[in-house]
Design a binder for these strands. Sequence first.
DNA 1: CCTACCGATCGGTAGG
DNA 2: CCTACCGATCGGTAGG
Lengths: 202, 202
Amino acid sequence: MVQGVSAQRPEARATVNAAAVREAALALFAERGYHGTALSQIAGALGIRTPSLYNHMRAKQDLLRDIVSDTTEQVWAEYVASVDGVDDVVERLRRAVKTYALRHATHRREALIVNRDIDSLEEPVLAAVLDLRRRHERAIRGLIEEGVETGRFAVAVPALASFGILEMCVSIARWFRDEGPFSAAEVAEEYSDYALRIVGLK
Amino acid sequence: MVQGVSAQRPEARATVNAAAVREAALALFAERGYHGTALSQIAGALGIRTPSLYNHMRAKQDLLRDIVSDTTEQVWAEYVASVDGVDDVVERLRRAVKTYALRHATHRREALIVNRDIDSLEEPVLAAVLDLRRRHERAIRGLIEEGVETGRFAVAVPALASFGILEMCVSIARWFRDEGPFSAAEVAEEYSDYALRIVGLK
DNA sequence: CCTACCGATCGGTAGG
DNA sequence: CCTACCGATCGGTAGG
């Protein structure tokens, strides 16, 4: 048959698989929120009917869980890698913040979903995700406290500074645009500088 | 009749009015989001049936519109009042940020709704709200630019600094707790200090 | 303030 | 991958 080899013509047929469903969910959850997105919209974006989605997923909740869990785990892994082998506390904080800021410019949709719909997760996933987030916040706070103790930083309340720095980075996902005047790297560089200013780098 | 004067016994009967409906909507929208909240839940919180809500409102969308519009207008009015009569650009920025930060600690629910569900607003309200938000951001950016031009501040990209400062304040609504270790005034004081550090106050 | 009810839509299943 | 369909729930209305 002439058009029998559809694998060689991927544009001729919708190639739907689990990754495609997740990508569509990522786009729609980020735009309209988890509760604001219907599975019929995800199916529509893929050019299939709603029941066909169930060939590639088990439930709507699983789509959210995968996105949020993977993202949270990646944030922690990136943090660990960013400070690995770096001794100076100033440089450790700079790299940790730059990495976190960069992620929020380059993975905007994931960040928007985590911060908007995290409470829509069911247990025990929610508890695990919140635990990993707290671990990251405590690590950043620990760097600030270490810098204060060693006289490199000067800030009254390390906990408040860590919240301010992290949330400032998170918010990048809300306004950053690829077509905008600043590159992701520029924003990350500038924000890591803000972080060092907030903690009163001497 | 013995229990005829119900106005003297407000605890004996649910006193539902438009303000009570709005208060219930405020609590539930903030907790579960606009799309995640059903009118039946708002009615349930008030001890009435869903159709009875319509004696006090026209539509669910109107509840969101009132909350978001009023909040956005108050933010702008508070900004104007905070810098009124103050000439020094350093003091103007300090007061503007302190006011904005304080609001996000004292009006957490309103802030959470504005930042989570603003896109669920219908036009033309959405456009008006976004316009007022932009006006506030431009005002803060203008203060930073003025400070840089007059040599009081030293920051490379005033637009990025204004985003960072404002979103850092917005995020207070996400973690602040009345029972927490910091008072709203303390947080506002500390964050206005962070803002001046970010812009490189000399 | 209520009961009764509307059409629409939700996430998900049966069965092919 | 589809059609047909499930019970539940949605925001909202009729009518008292």
